[in-house]
């Protein structure tokens, strides 16, 4: 997965607005808030920041 660091710096969790971090094991973007804990898919190197498509960590 190639996610621009810069892109990671500007994106945030749409549900709780916390920063995101790369989950390199699963190629996903995880919300850094433990209370929220949503994990967003990255498909074809494109972050999909849709709450409907996120999974609970």
């Amino acid at each position: 997965m190639k996610i621009d660091d810069w892109l990671l710096d500007i994106l945030a969790c749409p549900a709780c607005k916390s920063p995101l971090r790369v989950e390199s094991d699963t190629d996903e973007l995880a919300c850094t808030s433990s209370e929220c804990g949503l994990v967003y898919p990255v498909r074809d190197d494109i972050p999909v920041l849709l709450v409907d498509e996120a999974r609970k960590a």
Binding site: L11, A12, C13, P14, L50
Partner: peptide, 13 residues
Amino acid sequence: DFAVGDGHDFTVA
């Protein structure tokens, strides 16, 4: 830079 997001609930850092 592009991302998939919904206009109803997008958030930026």
